[in-house]
C-alpha cells in the first residue's frame, strides 16, 4: 500500500531556510504538533494561551533521550522565539535551526535534573545562550553540516557555504558594538541619523564589521 506523506508530517523545525539568519522569527509552515503525542499538544495549547510551558510534564522523569522525544515535536518549550531574540540581541549571524537543535538537546540533557529553580523562563534563556556559546566555540573547530542555512543561502548567491560560514565566524570575532552597528545599518537598513550621538563612529564600526566579513583588514 503506498503511504502518502501527510501534510502535517513535516517537522516544524525550520525557521524557514531563508530566514534562519539572525533569528528572524518565521512561523512554521506546518504544524507537526498535530501528529505528535500529548506533550506537543500540551505545548501548542500553552503557546496559544500565552502561558509558560508546563515543564513538569515535559522535563521531569526519564532519561535525556526520553525527555528529548517529548520536546522535539511542536516546540512545546517555546524555544524558537527565545532563540530569535537571543540571536538578535547578540547580533549573531547564525543558523537558527542549528541553534534550535542544540538547544533542544541541551534542554533534554539538563532538564532531567531541573527542579524548578531558576524559574523556567530564565532557565530556558540560559539554555539558549549555552547553545549559542557552544556553537560559537565549535564554529572553527568542526566542519559545518552540508545542509542548513549556510548552504541554502550560499547556493543562490553562487557562494561557497564553507566560505560564507568562515566569513560569519570572522564577523563573530568582532566586538559586539561593531556587530550591532552592522546589523542596524546593513541588515535592518536603519538610517545613520538614528544611530544616536555618534553616527560617524557607528558607521566606522559597521565598516569594520563589513571588512571582517569580506576577510579584509578589519578582520
Amino acid at each position: 500500500m503506498p503511504v502518502r506523506p501527510h501534510p502535517s508530517a513535516t517537522p516544524d523545525l525550520p525557521f524557514g531556510s531563508d530566514s534562519a539568519f539572525l533569528g528572524v522569527e518565521a512561523q512554521p509552515t506546518r504544524d507537526a504538533a498535530s501528529v505528535a503525542g500529548a506533550p506537543s499538544a500540551l505545548g501548542t495549547e500553552a503557546r496559544r494561551r500565552g502561558k509558560r510551558p508546563d515543564w513538569r510534564a515535559l522535563l521531569c522523569g526519564g532519561t535525556p533521550r526520553e525527555v528529548l522525544a517529548r520536546i522535539v515535536d511542536g516546540d512545546p518549550l517555546g524555544l524558537r522565539p527565545r532563540i530569535a531574540a537571543a540571536l538578535r540581541a547578540g547580533a549573531w549571524l547564525m543558523d537558527a535551526d542549528r541553534v534550535l537543535i542544540r538547544a533542544l538537546a541541551l534542554c533534554a540533557r539538563r532538564g532531567s535534573t531541573y527542579r524548578g529553580r531558576p524559574p523556567i523562563d530564565e532557565w530556558l534563556d540560559a539554555r539558549v545562550q549555552e547553545s549559542i556559546d557552544d556553537l560559537l566555540e565549535a564554529e572553527h573547530a568542526q566542519p559545518p553540516p552540508t545542509t542548513g542555512a549556510f548552504s541554502d543561502l550560499a547556493r543562490p548567491l553562487s557562494l561557497s557555504p564553507e566560505r560564507l560560514r568562515a566569513a560569519c565566524a570572522r564577523f563573530h570575532a568582532r566586538p559586539r558594538e561593531e556587530r550591532e552597528a552592522y546589523v542596524r545599518l546593513v541588515l535592518d537598513r536603519r538610517p545613520l541619523e538614528e544611530s544616536g550621538a555618534e553616527p560617524l563612529e557607528t558607521a566606522r564600526r559597521a565598516r569594520r564589521a563589513i571588512q571582517a566579513l569580506l576577510g579584509g583588514e578589519g578582520s
Binding site: T10, V35, L106
Partner: peptide, 27 residues
C-alpha cells in the same frame, strides 16, 4: 492506515528525530 501511519513514516520527521539524537550525543 494512511491517517494512522503518516506521521511515523515521514522521512523528514525521522530525520529531525535522528538529528536531535545525534545532537544529544554531541552534548
Amino acid at each position: 492506515l494512511t491517517e494512522v501511519l503518516c506521521g511515523f513514516v515521514s522521512s523528514q520527521w525521522l530525520e529531525l528525530h535522528a538529528r536531535c539524537e545525534d545532537e544529544l550525543s554531541q552534548v
